[in-house]
Amino acid sequence: MYDVFMDPFVQMAQMPDLLVQVLWEGLVSGVLYALIALGFVLIFKASGVFNFAQGIMVVFSALSLVGIYQFLARNGFSGHLAAFVALVGAIGVMFLLAVAVEKIVLRPLVNQPDIILFMATFGITWFLIGLGEIIFGGEPKAMISDQLFLPRGAWNVDMLGGMVVFQKLDVAAAVIASLMIASLAVFFQKTRIGRALRAVADSHKAALSVGISLNQIWVIVWFAAGVVALVAGIMWGARSNVSFSLQIIALKALPVLILGGFTSVPGAIVGGLIIGVGEKLAEFYWGPLVGGGIEAWFAYVIALVFLLFRPQGLFGDKIIERI
């Protein structure tokens, strides 16, 4: 009992620098989970589709970025400029993907039950896995972080009687993710398209009746989710490598989603941070008691406990049931 309820806290108090380090790691991975969850939320709000393919979109966008850059480099065009050309190219790929998904998959399946659309996104996932491996190959690729001006190295900060290491890349990831989230918030609140998106999220029928084109909105939403996926892919890719195993990490975004609520952008962010910090703390302080590796499922348990008290997530729309 002492090991479970007292000892971890004693450790935390004895070594505050270590605690800060763990918290920071948790915050960074939380921001990245939030970024993946954001893509889910965008699509779920606007089309009611639970987009399982978000994980593979992260991988696919990052792969196309690296793939295009390598193609350019092979033809004698490399460096910073080529990297940004590749970035534009990858954004173009995500746009094409959004158009294709809307035209081929969503439009014929309008008005089908949610679970059918959910399964269709599974189909998209498998299709993209096959396509990605055929085009770019299955081996892990290094992200072109230097060419994209992503910083390397770390700051060592002396604090609380110890040293805490902040990877510059993690700081950059946190800053970029915050910028991304802020710009999405502005986009949603202030622009014409953003208002249309919110209208569609409120009610498909009402939005149609005031002249908003659903098909157009869906393309925009899937494209926005694709761009968010690209940013997430660059950040995850720079931390490790770009490979298909990233898709598993994307599953971590699911507890973030249920914690924050499927329809809430702030929920995705807060949920991401709670999950990220929670699972790192649990892994570091309680993990050794049961043999480690509890990161794999701890996030789901946190989410489950929250769900028992708020079945629609922390910030989700209240579920009202009528007969």
Partner: peptide, 17 residues
């Protein structure tokens, strides 16, 4: 193997539609 993934994915979408 990759083609299998691709085709199964496409066929799932096709059957659903």
């Amino acid at each position: 193997e990759h083609l299998t993934f691709l085709l199964v994915g496409a066929l799932i979408i096709f059957f659903l539609i």
